[in-house]
């Protein structure tokens, strides 16, 4: 499968191993601060998918798929449902569709919990799933 001999590089491969956890932590950080500051599910999702895209380029698509464990399109479906559930919670708790619901829980680092964050988490997974579907498909050579 798509292992590109001309691009095989020990440096890139090693660096990717080190960068991946950093990128993923950073993406979660961006996701969580997104409500009031620059960041959010979309940017966070892009950063998280670069982690796996890097792995796909430095090693191979198969390795990246195994590391992700879940099929990207399923990640996309899951994200869609999570984002939608944020809208439905607003509706079911007696408000309007997509009306923000804030249960009043405050966490030390993350801040106030509410349905807008749930929506952002959904967006995060949709973006990861979508980007990786595209990247993996483009990197896989058709037989």
């Amino acid at each position: 499968m798509a292992r590109w001999p001309e691009m095989e590089s020990v440096i890139l491969s090693r660096a990717t191993r080190l960068m991946m956890p950093v990128l993923i932590v950073f993406s979660v950080f961006l996701l969580l601060r997104g409500h009031n500051a620059p960041g959010g599910g979309f940017v966070g999702g892009l950063i998280a998918s670069t982690a796996f895209a890097l792995l796909a380029i430095s090693d191979s698509v198969d390795v990246a798929r195994q590391t992700l464990r879940i099929e990207p399109r399923r990640v996309m479906g899951f994200g869609l449902l999570v984002a939608l559930s944020a809208g439905l919670i607003g509706l079911l708790s007696g408000g309007s569709f997509f009306e923000g619901v804030w249960p009043g829980i405050k966490l030390p680092v993350i801040g106030k919990l509410g349905t807008p964050m749930l929506f952002d988490i959904g967006v995060f997974f949709v973006v990861v799933g979508f980007t990786l579907t595209v990247v993996f498909t483009l990197l896989t050579e058709e037989d």
Partner: peptide, 14 residues
């Protein structure tokens, strides 16, 4: 909501 939910589940069914 209905097409969105269905699309989501169809993606999960992969």
């Amino acid at each position: 909501v209905i097409p969105l939910v269905t699309a989501g589940f169809c993606l999960l069914a992969s």
